[in-house]
Design a protein around this nucleic acid. Sequence first.
DNA 1: AGCCTTTGACCAGCG
DNA 2: TCGCTGGTCAAAGGC
Length: 259
Amino acid sequence: MENSYLDQGAAIREVGRGYDILKQLHGLLWLKSRNGEEAVHTQELAEPLFREALQALNYALCIMRPGVGSVEVKSEIVVLESGSPAYSSHESVASYDSNQRIDNGRGKRRRVEENSWINNTSMPYDDGYQWRKYGDKKISGTDFPRSYFRCTYKEEYKCTAKKVVQQTSDGETPSFRVTYTNKHTCNFRKTISPPTSQSSSFGSIEQDSGINQMPDIMPQQLNQSSCLVDANNLEKIYANASMVERNWEWDIESFLMDW
DNA sequence: AGCCTTTGACCAGCG
DNA sequence: TCGCTGGTCAAAGGC
């Protein structure tokens, strides 16, 4: 299979998205180190960003790899907490599933011909998008029911994104196989905006422009912090973080622009 | 009131 | 052709 320019464009966008999220993670690390103490639950904030970045990069790799259908990108995040065993590894496997069947109207099924990919994960329900469950089915040969989700904005924005969550193992860190079908066309995602002099409020659900997304953090996660950082301090920290990253930032961004 | 999940029924693909 | 199975619909109830 030959990649089209459209596919390359999509891949570039996904790589850009992953890069952007990693930048935000870098800012988070600064947030912690500059405050000296555990001012923010860094892990709690960083984890969804890691997952988001991995998902974007996995998807981009799927697009870019020749011979789609055999793509298998494995990546793993291990977050270590001092004084405790490794926080569970988070495994993510993206692949196109050429044998999967999808719907074609009420009850119709056919072999996949459009975009779908699989993500094996231990946290299937928080991927930054809003989903509405529309079905639940016990599948023969499996120990756990399969759940069917569609994008919440299906009607409003004709978003055709869907996902199917199948638990594959139980235990302390249960794993799930999440099959995504179709990319989101609604572009709605949980985001926060950096505080500005005009606004110090955190947290909004806004339409993202595709590449300059802010961290995928819910406002309540910030409010749960034992020591809140006021808006002015946070603004300074964001500014400092972006100064530090400027050295390596240009190389990647110019690459993404030239590619 | 509006959005969500649950759940049984329905329907079409597949062997 | 028929039964099994997986995916979706839609009513009902909950939050």
